[in-house]
Write a protein that binds this DNA or RNA. Structure first.
Lengths: 138, 138
DNA sequence: TATATTTTGCAACGCTGTTGCATTGTATTA
DNA sequence: TAATACAATGCAACAGCGTTGCAAAATATA
């Protein structure tokens, strides 16, 4: 597991630092998506807020994680699948946010249906955000 | 037009105030969705920020406007269609945000496709947010 | 018009996210 | 391994969004 983390960082030409290792580890153990808030608390106040923001930015740029728009106006991040690095728009899965426990899931195996738009509109990205109760909170 | 505004407020049992009239008017003239920022500027610094926030909240509660989650983490609001007041989850249309001009459209006539979820998940709301170029920016 | 009720504006606050800069840590080369 | 170049971190400060409490002003009611 620990080797996976270092490999991932190296593969993306990132230098190995404590914060990057720790934050990547949090994502690997997380069941759903994480917000900055979650990381700040789960990392035990070990790193500066700014470092966390910058690490998240770096991970997004490298395609290690991706952002999820949410209705509650807070950016959430989730791990990308292995081979989704460059040029990938993440058009391919649905996000689900539980109203009860707040957990955000990436439903990787549910594909986003095609939506036909009026003439003149060109689509580069489609996000589907569903909310309701997850399997644990029914 | 002015009468429409007052009617709408009365129909929703809201007292007629300057800010409510002005903000509702802005929505009626707006082509797309509005963010708090837009309203604050378009109303010409006439009202306090707090008043705008509270007015928007009130309008959302009454079902006059609805919120749109966006990828850039800023809440946007758009007018609801006439009869979409209570209990309506706004499952029925797609939102489109133009990467060039930033305009957010409610595509009322494009219906949200059904997405089947894994067992145990219950859906109460589905938001589809598409981005790309709108008809004016192609 | 007088009274009760809402709404507004102000001040203050907390949270999110960003930037600049000095310091520290990591990678690289000999 | 040590010296150097480079990148990441922490700190301080800042801007923006959104909320709350309370007194003043506006609206509705009778």
């Amino acid at each position: 597991m620990h080797q996976t983390i270092i490999d991932t960082l190296k593969r993306n030409q990132l230098s190995i630092t404590d914060s990057r290792k720790k934050i990547l580890e949090l994502f690997l153990h997380a069941k759903g998506a994480l917000a900055h808030f979650d990381i700040e608390h789960q990392s035990g106040a070990e790193f500066d807020r700014v470092t966390i923001y910058r690490t998240l930015q770096t991970f997004v740029e490298k395609g290690i994680i991706h952002t999820i728009p949410t209705a509650d106006n807070s950016i959430r991040y989730a791990l990308c699948k292995d081979d989704c690095a460059n040029g990938h728009h993440h058009d391919d899965h649905v996000h689900f946010m539980c109203d009860s426990c707040g957990t955000t899931y990436c439903l990787d195996h549910v594909t986003v249906p095609q939506v036909s738009l009026p003439n003149g509109f060109t689509v580069t990205q489609t996000d589907v955000i569903m909310s309701g109760k997850c399997m644990k909170c029914v």
